[in-house]
Structure formats: structure tokens, C-alpha cells
């Protein structure tokens, strides 16, 4: 299943990117090679004096003539910097970050190497100017390439970032284990865990680690939850007769983990507060109920799907 979905994400991603790029090339939707006409009066100095800051008015028809695949709502005013280069040439740096600026400009800017500005070359023509940008093409395929390379590095950083916190908690956990604490903890929750994980002996260290992982998750202590969880996976894997194949207990544990009840969804509350909510903590109740529903369903689903033919344990082959 994971094989198919993993492949599907990549295939759908690359094909969509290629499809969009072909559509844009066929329709020339960035107006490549079509100069922008700037008439006398379209380029207005922001204030009298030596400042380079101007405002460029681009009429709706002119936008539509270039960005053929989208409907342009009306004239836009773009803040620009104007750099004269002799009498008949100049360059114009467009600030594309504003809210009212068409998104196309921002995409062009990004494709040409800068997220905020887009540089056009001006030639004097009669009373006004003619502006050209560098050609923009295959935007989405380039985006896909950049994203893939960037995230590959990020993934390694995430994994390496776990080392410190993992070492700390696995060290502390080892002490607790040798002192017999993890087994005590496992016995304490025995009535629940024998039903959830029938294949795991009730006083197995895996149970203690799973309980600690879930407790840490409920309290929103993600940094401590991951080491506990990975420790639990290691313990569960010791009970695994088929290396490389997930056991029923592992799947049920991860079902509990991914849908886990969080008592205080701290990040969501913080974002709501920052966005000016009148009651940021309002979602505590709703997310508690939603995740409780999901957790209960997740456990039931994991038990049911384990019996489905294609997922059955007996049918899964070890390495």
C-alpha cells in the first residue's frame, strides 16, 4: 500500500508539473517575447526630487495581452525603481510582493531568481517605453526539482536533529528499564493493553514505552514523545518474527499515535492568538472530541484491516 501511494505522489506530482508547463508554453501564458508598452504618464515619480522610486500603472488590457490564460480584473499599480542607462535605455525593478499585484508577476520573479523583485529592460519608444523581461518557462518542473533537492537536505537535518534528544531520553529510559520501572508501568495498565495488543506479553518493556509515548503526546511533549515511541518500536520489533514486516501491534500503536488525543493543541492555539482570534483556546474542546473519535476509530480500523486478505500477517513475507 505504502509502495503505491509513495509512487503515486511522485508520478502525480511530476505529471501535473509537466502538464501545467506544457499548457503554459502552448498558451505563452507569461507573455514571453511580447514587449510591454509603457505610455507617457504610466510611469509616475512617487515624489519630486532625485528619488528612484516610481509607480508603474499597467492597464488591464496590457495585462490581459500577456497573461492570456487568466482573467485580469483591472489596472494595477506596481511600485518600481527606475534606473536610467543613457538616453534611450533604462532598467525597471518591479516590487512584486504587494497584495494587488497579479500572482503571475510573483511566479515570474521567482522563476527568474528573486522572490521579491522582477527586473525589466526598457527601450525608449516615442513618448513612452517598451519593457521586456527575460523569458520564463517550465516553471513547475523547475519548482519540483528545487523542492526535491531542498527537502532531501532538510530530511537529513530533521533526522540528525533527533540525535541529541534521542540520546538523552534513551539514556534515561535505560536506567528506568534496569530499575524495573518500565515493567511496573506496563503491569499498571495491563487491563487496557492486553486487549489493545493481544500479541504483546502484558509486562513486556514495549508496553511501558508505548504508554510513555502516548502520555507525552497527550501533554503535547513532542520532543519526549518521539524517543519513547521509537524505543517502543524497537521493543515491539524484538517480538517480531519477520524482520522488515510490521506486526499487528506496531500498526495499532501507530494508529493510536497518529490520531492521538492532545489535551492542549498548543501550536494551533498560538497561531489563532497571533491571527487575532477573540478566543484562541476555543478549539480545545472541539479538537479533543474530534481526536477522541479518531483514536477510537483508528484502533477499530487497525483491528479490522489486519484481517483483510491483502494485509494479512500470514501473507506478508519477511526479508
Amino acid at each position: 500500500m505504502l509502495n503505491h501511494i509513495w509512487l503515486a505522489l511522485i508520478v502525480i506530482g511530476i505529471c501535473t508539473a509537466a502538464g501545467r508547463d506544457i499548457f503554459e508554453v502552448v498558451n505563452n501564458s507569461y507573455g514571453n517575447g511580447i514587449p510591454w508598452e509603457i505610455r507617457e504618464g504610466d510611469l509616475m515619480r512617487d515624489e519630486e526630487g532625485a528619488s528612484l522610486h516610481f509607480t508603474l500603472r499597467i492597464p488591464a488590457e496590457e495585462l490581459q495581452r500577456h497573461f492570456t490564460t487568466e482573467v485580469m480584473a483591472g489596472d494595477v499599480h506596481v511600485p518600481v525603481k527606475f534606473f536610467p542607462q543613457g538616453a534611450d535605455n533604462a532598467s525597471l525593478v518591479l516590487d512584486v510582493t504587494g497584495e494587488s499585484i497579479p500572482e503571475r508577476f510573483a511566479i515570474m520573479a521567482e522563476a527568474l531568481g528573486s522572490a521579491e523583485t522582477l527586473t525589466g529592460q526598457l527601450d525608449r519608444r516615442g513618448d513612452g517605453w517598451r519593457m521586456r523581461f527575460d523569458e520564463v518557462s517550465l516553471v513547475y518542473l523547475r519548482k519540483v526539482t528545487n523542492a526535491a533537492f531542498e527537502i532531501a537536505g532538510v530530511a537529513v537535518q530533521i533526522a540528525l536533529g533527533l540525535i541529541g534528544i534521542m540520546a538523552l531520553w534513551l539514556g534515561v529510559m535505560r536506567v528506568a528499564e534496569q530499575a524495573g520501572l518500565i515493567t511496573h508501568l506496563a503491569r499498571l495498565v495491563r487491563p487496557i493493553t492486553v486487549r489493545l495488543f493481544p500479541d504483546v506479553p502484558a509486562d513486556h518493556p514495549a508496553v511501558g514505552s508505548m504508554i510513555m509515548n502516548i502520555a507525552a503526546n497527550m501533554l503535547g511533549l513532542g520532543n519526549a514523545a518521539t524517543p519513547f515511541g521509537l524505543k517502543a518500536m524497537e521493543e515491539l520489533d524484538k517480538l517480531n518474527p519477520k524482520s522488515g514486516v510490521a506486526t499487528d501491534a506496531m500498526v495499532t500503536f501507530l494508529a493510536l499515535n497518529t490520531s492521538c488525543v492532545t489535551l492542549i493543541p498548543a501550536t494551533a492555539i498560538a497561531v489563532r492568538a497571533a491571527a487575532g482570534s477573540s478566543d484562541p483556546a476555543f478549539i480545545i474542546g472541539t479538537s479533543f472530541l474530534a481526536s477522541l473519535t479518531a483514536t477510537i476509530s483508528a484502533v477499530i480500523i487497525s483491528k479490522l484491516l489486519a484481517k483483510v486478505r491483502m494485509f494479512r500477517w500470514e501473507r506478508s513475507e519477511a526479508d
Binding site: 500500500m1 522488515g244 500498526v251 494508529a255 487497525s302 483483510v308 506478508s316
Partner: peptide
Amino acid sequence: IRNTRHALPT
């Protein structure tokens, strides 16, 4: 673990 069985659909 490479064969994740029903973990993802769950």
C-alpha cells in the same frame, strides 16, 4: 520496517 501492511490505510 519496509512492509508496513495496513498502517497507512489505517
